[in-house]
Design a protein around this nucleic acid. Structure first.
Length: 421
DNA sequence: TCTGGGGTCCTAGGACCC
DNA sequence: TCTGGGGTCCTAGGACCC
């Protein structure tokens, strides 16, 4: 049977989330900044009109924002994650087979459904009514084409936010109008290679005859993308929530950090955060990486500190991981540099129940596990950071991020809810 | 003064083994 | 004098995504 996929994507998601609680901001330009109020990571159509680009550093567009009354928010991920969960569960009620692709996007398997375009509009209207988030819907026989349909839905005002590319003639016509760099999976490097071959539109790429050459310059995945554009299914709907293969936590500091002690505190906090995530997916880790670096945008001496270890007895114990991270820091830290960012990565995961304890096991004991479990439960109930290790420090002023424009946590904190009028 | 954070997949090449 | 060939595993780095 002919497959049918929909890609449902929330419009300017973080901005739309802020608008849910501040409806007076509809029709007004809104942007959301990255951590540390560094750069713009979400813009409404009105903000895009003003020329604000994805990733523009805030200090460069600050004046433009002030002059045009752009509403500026620091990122509030607790809020966005919560609204994302609601969007996804609404979607799941409408179409049971979905793959959550990112915080603001999901693929749906619509195979067998008859009137696909009306169904697309139904999805759009239900999510808007139930959650208050506007979405675009792209419908097509493969995932790559559904992404393309969604892209067209965003660009074309006539579409009403829903584009159906199931019809092959209509699809071919549409593909002639879209530049090849808009294809999902074709980034800058690949599109330069395709341009060099004289392939400029999606249609040019999809109908290019020399597939061996495509595989050679764009690898196996590049060829699969080309096939998907021709309507041949190469990527299926990944339904199971797969476990992460690595978990990272890193931050840019609010100020430059010089002291090893401050660096250690920040690292201890990142380990705490990452290892809690790891326990939530029921993993043990056998590899730990730590890095710290100076500000590459700033003139002056640069230093990138990086180290990685294998852990002989995989662990899920925050204390051990902090201990190992500190050892790496002690061995690699260099005095006198202006550190601007640091982070950690946990990887080499095992499932907790799959890992065989060996005879001379010095891995996590039952009481270690119990302790971590209790800490996680208390922090879940009483709020993040209620219980933490002394290594994390009590005063984080020296390195904490700046977030001057943060909205209240309307959905995750009773204290903040009173801000809602 | 001020430039985010967190992921996945693929490939080439080295190390190592028989 | 003459010094193979094939396989696997691991890692670093590139490319891409949101």
């Amino acid at each position: 049977m002919q497959k049918a996929f929909a890609l449902v994507d929330c419009n300017s998601f973080y901005c739309s989330c802020e608008r849910v609680f501040r409806p007076e901001l509809n029709q007004r330009p809104v942007i959301v900044l990255s951590n540390n109020d560094g750069c713009a990571i979400a813009r409404t159509a009105e903000a895009k009109q003003l020329g604000i680009k994805m990733g523009d550093p805030y200090f460069k567009i600050k004046k433009l924002c002030q002059d045009n009354q752009v509403e500026v928010f620091s990122s509030n991920f607790a809020l966005y994650t919560n609204l994302s969960d609601r969007v996804m569960s609404t979607l799941n009620n409408l179409c049971p087979k979905i793959e959550i692709y990112s915080i603001d996007e999901a693929f749906c398997d619509l195979t067998g459904i008859k009137d696909l375009s009306p169904f697309g509009f139904k999805i759009q209207q239900t999510i808007l009514k139930n959650i208050g988030i506007p979405v675009g819907v792209g419908i097509a026989p493969t995932k790559v084409l559904a992404k393309l349909a969604n892209h067209i839905a965003k660009k074309s005002k006539l579409s009403g936010g829903v584009v159906n590319l199931m019809d092959v003639d209509f699809r071919m016509m549409a593909m002639k109008k879209v530049p090849v760099e808009e294809v999902w999976g074709i980034g800058r490097a690949s599109s330069e290679k395709l341009h060099a071959l004289g392939l400029h539109t999606v249609y040019d790429f999809a109908t290019y005859k020399n597939e061996e050459h495509i595989q050679k310059i764009l690898t196996k995945v590049g060829l699969q993308i080309k096939h998907e554009l021709l309507g041949i299914n190469c990527f299926s709907l990944g339904q199971d929530v797969e476990k992460k293969k690595e978990i990272m936590c890193s931050r840019t500091f609010g100020q430059s950090v010089f002291a090893k002690e401050h660096l250690k505190e920040s690292i201890a906090n990142y380990i705490t955060n990452a290892s809690e995530k790891m326990r939530r997916q029921d993993s043990l880790c056998s590899e730990l990486s730590v890095f710290a670096r100076t500000n590459p945008f700033k003139e002056g001496a640069q230093f990138y500190m990086y180290d990685r270890i294998k852990i002989q007895h995989p662990t899920r114990d925050t204390r051990k991981l902090i201990y190992f991270a500190f050892e790496m820091l002690e061995a690699n830290f260099r005095e006198g540099y202006e550190y601007k960012k640091a982070g950690v990565k946990l990887s080499g995961f095992f499932n907790t129940h799959e890992y065989q304890l060996d005879f001379f096991n010095t891995g996590d004991t039952l009481s270690d596990l119990k302790l971590m479990q209790v800490i996680d439960e208390i922090n879940k109930r009483e709020g993040e950071g209620t219980l933490k290790f002394a290594a994390c420090g009590v005063d984080d002023k020296a390195w904490r991020m700046n977030r001057g424009h943060k909205s209240p946590r309307y959905l995750t904190s009773w204290n903040d809810l009173k801000e809602f009028n």
